[in-house]
């Protein structure tokens, strides 16, 4: 009895904060999503907010953009990171130096990185368009063209995702069983065959883990859009994402109910995704 009282006492600081800022807001999000949007005089309106959100073409745009972003950034970022990590692993001398360099962008705030990219991607005096000019490519209006806005966010997303992936993949490579490689080189397998037949299968759990983390992070992007387009979601909301939609409904136009309904939908999508991914992972590890 005394022991359990003590346990709850020690847990209480953490639990109070977790209840107030994790559990209650979750309940409140669900509650508000069924309420009319004004805070002072709100009442239960059933599924109306959900219907409004689900039939809103801007919400469709937001979900579409988020999905395309995830579908582009996650595989491309992962493949580039895998190539870099595999090459770095063969560097015996400067491996750690390069690891430190490639990881650096990860710890710098998205706002700072986004500000730099806003300049680099500028149509008239951005370096990227200048370099494209060497290859006779016309300047691309990365920032003010609704057709290209999503591509802009994707480029930034891939660049930002490399550091974390490389560091995790390198740690996975370092833990590989080196026995197989000795056998492989005895059998005369070349580097590429070794990578394809030995390294990749062994890395599969880590790659699956990175796929999940990257996908969930992609579903949550917001700051990237906000900073690249300097406080907007691109021209005419062309680069709007799911979280940006929630932010816009909630904070800008003060339609709390609709914002929270969108939040619940996003949460459900992430949950379904996580469950499916877990099932796949379980199948992979069982084999």
């Amino acid at each position: 009895m005394r022991k359990s009282l003590k346990a709850w006492f020690l847990l209480s600081p953490a639990l109070i904060i977790i209840i107030l800022f994790n559990l209650l807001p979750l309940a409140r999000t669900v509650f508000l999503s069924f309420q009319s949007s004004s805070l002072n005089n709100s009442h239960f309106i059933g599924l109306e907010n959900y219907i409004t959100v689900l039939t809103d073409s801007r919400f469709h745009q937001a979900i579409y953009n988020t999905a395309i972003y995830a579908l582009a950034v996650v595989p491309i970022g992962l493949i580039i990171s895998l190539i870099i990590a595999a090459i770095l692993y063969d560097f015996k001398k400067f491996q750690v130096v390069f690891e430190v360099i490639f990881f650096m962008p990860y710890i710098i705030s998205t706002v700072a990185k986004g500000s730099i990219f806003r300049l680099l991607l500028n149509e008239d005096y951005g370096i990227i368009n200048n370099i494209l000019g060497w290859f006779n490519i016309m300047p691309i209006n990365f920032l003010d063209d609704p057709e290209i806005a999503l591509l802009t966010i994707i480029i930034f997303g891939i660049w930002s995702s490399l550091g974390f992936n490389i560091v995790i993949l390198l740690s996975g490579l370092r833990n590989l069983n080196s026995q197989y490689y000795k056998m492989a080189s005895v059998c005369g397998a070349n580097k590429f065959q070794q990578f394809w037949l030995i390294t990749l299968p062994q890395l599969l759990p880590i790659i699956t883990f990175l796929l999940t983390v990257n996908c969930i992070n992609s579903f949550r992007i917001y700051t990237e859009v906000y900073t690249i387009f300097n406080g907007k979601a691109g021209i005419g909301y062309s680069a709007i994402t799911a979280v940006y939609y929630i932010y816009d409904k909630f904070y800008v136009v003060n339609r709390y109910g609709e914002g929270m309904a969108a939040a619940v939908i996003l949460f459900m999508l992430i949950l379904i995704f996580t469950i499916i991914q877990n099932l796949i992972l379980r199948k992979l590890t069982r084999r």
Partner: peptide, 11 residues
């Protein structure tokens, strides 16, 4: 499993 972005507005 609850993403931060879902909670932050009610907080």
């Amino acid at each position: 499993m609850v993403p931060y972005e879902v909670l932050v507005f009610c907080n």
